[in-house]
Simulated scan of single mutants.
Amino acid sequence: MQKEMAELSEVYERLRGEIVEGTFDAGANLVELALAERYGTSRTPIREALRRLEQDGLVERGDRGMRVRTRSPEEILEIYEVRIALEATAASAAAIRHTDLDLIRVRKAQSTMDAVSPEDPTTMMAANRAVHEAIWAAGHNGTVVDLLSRLNNHLTRYPATTLESAGRWQEALSEHHALIEAIESRDSTHAGELARAHMTKARDLRLQIYRDE
Rank of each mutant, 00 (worst) to 15 (best):
M1R: 03
K3S: 15
K3N: 08
K3V: 15
E4D: 11
A6T: 08
A6W: 03
L8A: 01
V11A: 00
Y12L: 11
E13S: 08
R14M: 15
E18I: 15
I19H: 00
V20M: 01
V20S: 01
E21L: 13
E21W: 02
D25S: 11
D25R: 02
A26N: 07
G27T: 14
A28T: 11
N29K: 10
L30K: 00
L33H: 07
A34R: 09
L35E: 12
E37C: 00
T41Q: 00
S42Q: 09
T44K: 05
T44V: 12
I46V: 15
I46A: 03
E48P: 10
E48I: 12
R52S: 14
L53R: 00
E54D: 04
E54L: 07
Q55H: 10
D56Q: 08
G57N: 01
L58E: 07
E60I: 10
R61M: 14
R61I: 15
G62K: 05
R64P: 02
G65V: 14
R67N: 09
V68W: 03
T70I: 13
R71D: 11
E74K: 08
E75Y: 14
I76W: 06
I76M: 03
I76L: 14
I79T: 08
E81F: 13
R83Y: 07
A85R: 14
E87V: 02
A90L: 11
A90C: 11
S92H: 00
S92K: 04
S92M: 11
A95E: 05
D100I: 13
D100R: 05
L101V: 15
L101H: 03
L103T: 07
A109G: 07
A115M: 04
A115K: 03
E119I: 11
D120G: 05
D120R: 05
M124V: 14
M125N: 07
A126L: 09
N128G: 13
A130D: 12
A130W: 06
A130C: 09
A134G: 04
G139T: 10
H140N: 04
N141F: 08
N141H: 12
N141E: 14
V145G: 00
D146I: 04
L148D: 00
S149H: 03
H154N: 06
T156E: 01
R157K: 07
A160K: 06
A160T: 10
A160N: 00
L163Y: 10
L163G: 00
G167R: 09
W169F: 15
Q170P: 03
E171V: 04
A172M: 02
L173D: 09
E175A: 12
E175N: 07
E175G: 05
H176E: 04
H176V: 02
H177A: 14
L179E: 05
L179P: 07
I180G: 01
I180C: 00
I183K: 00
R186V: 05
R186I: 01
D187V: 05
A191R: 09
G192E: 10
E193K: 02
L194C: 06
R196Q: 12
H198A: 05
T200F: 10
K201W: 08
K201P: 01
R203V: 02
R206Q: 12
R206G: 04
R206K: 13
R206W: 13
L207E: 06
Y210Q: 02
Y210V: 02
Y210C: 04
Y210K: 01
R211I: 08
